[in-house]
């Protein structure tokens, strides 16, 4: 079978992803860390959905049953000079911080 690229940034093939699944990496979070899928320069914008669909297939479940990995900031890589040019924001009080869509994912994570 010819090689099919799943993650272009980290050069991960579909075959490598499937082999990792067979080797016991059955969680999207673990597949991400083992194969490197979605950890490259595009931060998974090009591959995370494909990876989740592939995992749904491998597990024989509906795509909706595969929650995405926790989405990490920033959305685009940003230079340390740009970040350092900002004033230091105050600590957000996490007890009163409003819930966001990302929190649901983090909850499932735990």
């Amino acid at each position: 079978m010819s090689k099919r690229i799943l993650c272009r940034c980290e050069d991960v093939t579909l075959q490598e992803f499937r082999k990792a699944y067979r080797d016991g990496f059955t969680e999207l979070e673990s597949l991400k860390r083992f194969t490197g899928v979605s950890t490259g320069f595009c931060q998974g914008k090009g591959c995370l959905v494909e990876a989740a669909l592939e995992l749904a297939d491998l597990r024989g479940v509906a795509p909706a049953d595969i929650p995405p990995t926790t989405i990490r900031q920033p959305i685009e890589p940003i230079s340390f000079a740009d970040l350092a040019s900002l004033d230091v924001p105050p600590m957000i009080d996490t007890m009163t911080r409003p819930a966001s869509a990302a929190d649901t994912v983090e909850e499932e994570d735990e």
């Binding site: 940003i78 230079s79 340390f80």
Partner: peptide, 8 residues
């Protein structure tokens, strides 16, 4: 300075 932060 010119290096980029990827993920936190």
């Amino acid at each position: 300075r010119t290096l980029r932060l990827m993920r936190q």
